[in-house]
Each structure stands twice: as C-alpha cells, then as structure tokens.
C-alpha cells in the first residue's frame, strides 16, 4: 500500500493522528490553567512557561540523556514560575492579568537567552505506544502512534475531575476560588492555597512545554509555541472549568491545529497560511459564542477576575 491509495480519506485520518499529537500540550496547559482558575486566579503567563518548559526540557534531556528527566525539569521550571506569579499576585493591588503578561515576556526572554546553545544538538525524545500494529496501512499506523504523555494527561484530567468532585483538597480549592470570604470563615489560608494552585498549574504547563520540544514538533527553536499557552486560557472558559471538558476541548483544538498540515499532506497548498490561522479563529469563535455581556458564566469560579 502506498500513500495515494487512501485519497481524501487520508485527511480525516491525518487530522485524528494530528489532533492527538497537537492536543497533548493543550491538555496539560489547560489542566494547569483550570487548577489555577478554580482557586480564583488567572495566569496568562503560561505561554511563557510553555516556551521556557520547552527549552529547559530539551536542554536537560540533552544533557542528562533522558527525556523523562527533561520532563521533570520542565515541570520544576514551571513550578518556579508559578510560585513567582502566585506570590507577586498575593500583594494587594497587584493585577494577576498584568503580572501574567509580564511573566509571559520574561519566560520567553529567559528561554531564548538560555536556549541559544541548544538549537543545534539533538536530545533524546519521548517514547510512544503503537496502537496501530494490526493495520497494514502506514497512515493508520502513523495516526495511532500515540505518545505516552497523552495517556498521562488523559488520566490526569480524570483524576482532577474526581479530585474537585469528591476530595477534601478539591473542596478547599473550589471554596477558595468561589468565595475568599467563605474560605477565610472556614479557617483556610486563601493566599497559600492560591499560590500552591498557581505553582502546581504552572508545573503542568511546564510539562506541556517539554512535550513540544521532546515529542512534537520534537526539537527546540524560538518559534516552538505560537499562542498555545494563551489559547489554553480560552479553552478552559470553553470547557466551563471542568477538567473532563478540558480533555475534549483540547482534542478539538488539536484537530483545528492539525487541519493545515493534514491538508498539506495530501497536496492542498491553497491558502496554506490561512489554515495556520484556523486554531486562532476557532478559539475566537468559541470565546465569542460562550461569552456573555450580562450573564455570569456557568461554572465560573466566583473570585475570577475575568468573569467579574
């Protein structure tokens, strides 16, 4: 069998495989953002974390020879960024959206600063699981070659959903995010809870960044992330702050991102650059449809500054 036999069927197949590949960083970043926002803070700095996580993950993977150590480095770097964001936003009258923009610029600046020397070398990448062994069609095998982090992310989405629903920790995070006064009345430390939620969320974004450089696209360069960290913020709104919703939304966003390369793979080059705009237009459209000027959005944490 060769590639042309599938004809246009190759497009949905390539989109499916692409959606899983492209969605994994969205999944991690959106779960991280979901955790942070559930505690009542918004973190727009995740775009910077994504880029810095990609750089540090790749660099450490190259230096240590293990992609998993690289993932760990990405997570640690993210946690550090989150800690800084969380602590600065705890000061009175410091705006979390503005700090997020500053952290985004700082994260990118630091990533480019330290990443210059790692553009050339080749670091060991992450393993994948071949679910398509049964098929002879190369495209099917390619589409079903699924990276390990996707499964971990899917499990994490379910675990987070369960945590918010049934555990004491989930209740604490939700209370802190819905009403700081109520949380204080319960004797909870609102500031500490938010700082830790931001750090944990940012660590997940760091893993998403490391995935970018260690699996797909699979190398480190300065254009590695183009707004995925920001789109994840919109994705969380679309998912109504539900971790399981984040999983499906990430797949949907991944599909939109895979559209351009998929069409290109079957030789459709018309409006090539416009297809690259598809994920952004798609995100804007979703924001447009799900926002409302008057109603408070269903499922939104009460303390969140973007929904107030």
């Amino acid at each position: 069998m060769n590639e042309t036999d599938l004809g246009l069927w190759a497009v949905p197949l390539a989109i499916l495989g692409g959606a899983i590949r492209v969605s994994t960083p969205f999944l991690f970043v959106s779960l991280g953002e979901c955790l942070t926002e559930r505690a009542g803070r918004i973190n727009l700095g995740l775009e910077g974390t994504l880029v810095f996580g990609a750089m540090s993950g790749y660099a450490v993977s190259y230096l240590s020879g293990s992609a998993w150590v690289g993932i760990l480095a990405g997570a640690l770097a993210g946690a550090l960024f989150g800690l800084i964001h969380g602590i600065l936003c705890s000061l009175p009258r410091v705006n979390d959206i503005a700090i997020g923009i500053a952290m985004m610029l700082l994260g990118m600046g630091l990533a480019f600063f330290f990443g210059k020397g790692f553009i050339q070398p080749v670091a060991p990448g992450l393993p994948s699981i071949e679910l398509g062994r049964w098929s002879d069609v190369p495209q099917v095998r390619a589409a079903l070659k699924i990276n390990v982090l996707f499964f971990i992310g899917a499990g994490l989405a379910f675990a987070m959903w369960w945590m918010f629903r049934t555990t004491r920790l989930g209740l604490i995070i939700r209370t802190v995010g819905d009403s700081a006064d109520a949380a204080r009345a319960m004797g909870l430390n609102v500031t500490l809870a938010r700082v830790l939620a931001t750090a944990a969320g940012d660590a997940l974004a760091g893993i998403g960044g490391a995935y970018l450089s260690l699996y797909y696209p699979g190398s480190w360069n300065e254009g590695i992330s183009s707004g995925q960290g920001l789109m994840a913020v919109a994705l969380v709104i679309f998912a109504r702050w539900n971790p399981l919703g984040c999983f499906w939304a990430a797949l949907l966003f991944g599909g939109a991102g895979a559209l351009g390369p998929a069409l290109q793979s079957v030789g459709i080059n018309q409006g090539y650059y416009l297809f690259y705009a598809a994920p952004y237009v798609f995100t804007l459209g979703l924001l447009f449809v799900t926002s409302s000027p008057t109603r408070v959005m269903a499922g939104a944490p009460g303390e969140l500054s973007i929904t107030k």
């Binding site: 923009i101 707004g227 789109m231 709104i237 650059y273 237009v281 804007l284 924001l287 926002s291 409302s292």
Partner: peptide
C-alpha cells in the same frame, strides 16, 4: 462590550491571525 469577550485574550489571538493573514 457587546459580547463580553475578554479583550486581553481576544486581542492577542487576533495578533496571531493578523500575522497569518499578512503571510498569506
């Protein structure tokens, strides 16, 4: 104003769209 879309996210998304449009 009319739809309640967050302007920070929307404006940055539109910057990416603008760059894609320019490339096109």
């Amino acid at each position: 104003h009319y739809r309640g879309v967050n302007e920070t996210i929307a404006s940055l998304l539109m910057a990416y769209v603008a760059i894609a449009l320019m490339n096109h």
